[in-house]
C-alpha cells in the first residue's frame, strides 16, 4: 500500500482490491485473491523457488 493508493475509506480500498483482481483475471485468466499489505509487507524471495516437493519414501 503506497501513499498514492491509500484512501482512508474502507470502500475505496476494497474497490482497489477488486480492481486489481479483475485486471489479474483478465491478463492471466486465473482468479487470484488480492490482499493489500503494508510497505515491505511482501517477503523477498529466499533463494531459489521450490517447485517440487519430494514426498517419496525411499
Amino acid at each position: 500500500m503506497t501513499d498514492e493508493l491509500f484512501s482512508d475509506e474502507i470502500k475505496n480500498l476494497e474497490n482497489k482490491e477488486r480492481e486489481i483482481e479483475a485486471k489479474l483475471a483478465s491478463a492471466l485468466l486465473v482468479h487470484a485473491k488480492v490482499k493489500l499489505v503494508e510497505p515491505k509487507g511482501i517477503p523477498r524471495s529466499e533463494g531459489k523457488a521450490k517447485r517440487i516437493v519430494d514426498k517419496r519414501q525411499v
Binding site: T2, D3, F6, S7, P39
Partner: peptide, 9 residues
C-alpha cells in the same frame, strides 16, 4: 509515522 515505514494520510 511515515519515517517508521507506515502508509499515512
Amino acid at each position: 509515522l511515515k519515517r517508521a515505514g507506515f502508509t499515512v494520510k
